[in-house]
Design a protein around this nucleic acid. Structure first.
Length: 260
DNA sequence: AATCTAGCCAACCGCCAGGAT
DNA sequence: TATCCTGGCGGTTGGCTAGAT
């Protein structure tokens, strides 16, 4: 038979997280890494669903998250990626280090959509909304000239919409996009880093968080739960408020937790 | 100063794929 | 092989805040 249910949802707290709850969750993840989200709330002393804990961690508490608005470059990346991948926010987020799918989704819905509409571009299809005026054409040219180019993918761009083709094209296209983007991102991020919204620099760099044993692994993306606990162990680091909370020794290792 | 409105964003909900039993 | 659970994903909601009246 299968496993036990994630949570019974009875008597569980919902709504905004309190600082206390955050502390408990951070404490727990710091000392045990990410594993068995179902067990986290119980062992961390939280009246929350495991799912809620995972979401809180990945979208808000993860130390490698960037804060603040998306930079102009990140915004362009999002637009280009959306044109190719559609509403696959997690895929898009995986190309933007330190950004979460939720954050990108929100930013798309609240800022980028409006921006594109203003420019006469359909945010869904990435095509002109109506017969373009000179102004709209000019704006579109500006946008396209400043966006990240996809050599192969762009050739077919005209014939498809974000909702149909990018998804239906399947994994092959995504792979090519991904490999192109990796190269593009590396260059672009490096070359732009001096002006890369300095107030959005992550509070803590990934390499400062992960212990040497995990150094061969890439920085955790929005979905890094596949890491085994030994690969995802925090090194001793400064984390105001958190490390002073104590109680860490009271927890047991994930190995034994997961066996239960 | 009080009320209303719109925008933003954190969090929830429901579905799905993959894995465990 | 069938059943069930987990983790992940995208869509949606609701509360908070700032600006307008």
């Amino acid at each position: 038979m299968g496993r036990q249910p994630c949570c019974d949802k009875v008597g569980l707290k919902k709504g905004p997280w309190t600082p206390e709850e955050d502390k408990k969750l951070i404490n727990f993840i710091l000392s045990h890494g990410q594993c068995c989200w179902r067990a986290v709330p119980k062992l961390a002393g939280l009246l929350r669903c495991g799912k809620s804990c995972r979401l809180r961690w990945t979208n808000y508490l993860r130390p490698d998250l960037k804060r603040g608005l998306l930079s102009e470059y990140e915004e362009k990346m999002v637009i280009d990626l959306h044109a190719h991948l559609g509403n696959r926010w997690s895929k898009i987020a995986s190309h933007l280090p330190g950004r979460t799918d939720n954050e990108i989704k929100n930013h798309w819905n609240t800022h980028i959509k409006k921006k594109l509409k203003k420019m006469g571009i359909d945010p869904v299809t990435h095509k002109p909304l109506s017969p373009s005026t000179d102004l709209q054409l000019e704006q579109q040219q500006k946008l396209s000239s400043s966006t990240v180019e996809f050599s192969d993918a762009d050739e077919n761009k005209e014939n498809r919409t974000s909702t149909e083709s990018p998804i239906s094209d399947g994994l092959e296209q995504e792979k090519s996009i991904t490999s192109e983007l990796n190269a593009i991102e590396a260059d672009a991020l490096l070359s732009k880093s001096p002006a890369f919204c300095t107030d959005e620099v992550p509070l803590i760099q990934t390499h400062e968080i992960l212990s040497p044993c995990a150094s061969s692994s890439p920085a955790p993306s929005s979905s890094n739960s596949s890491l085994n606990p030994d690969e995802f162990r925090f090194s001793s680091m400064e984390w105001p408020e958190i490390l002073s909370l104590g109680e860490l020794d009271d927890f047991i290792r994930w190995d034994s937790i997961c066996d239960r």
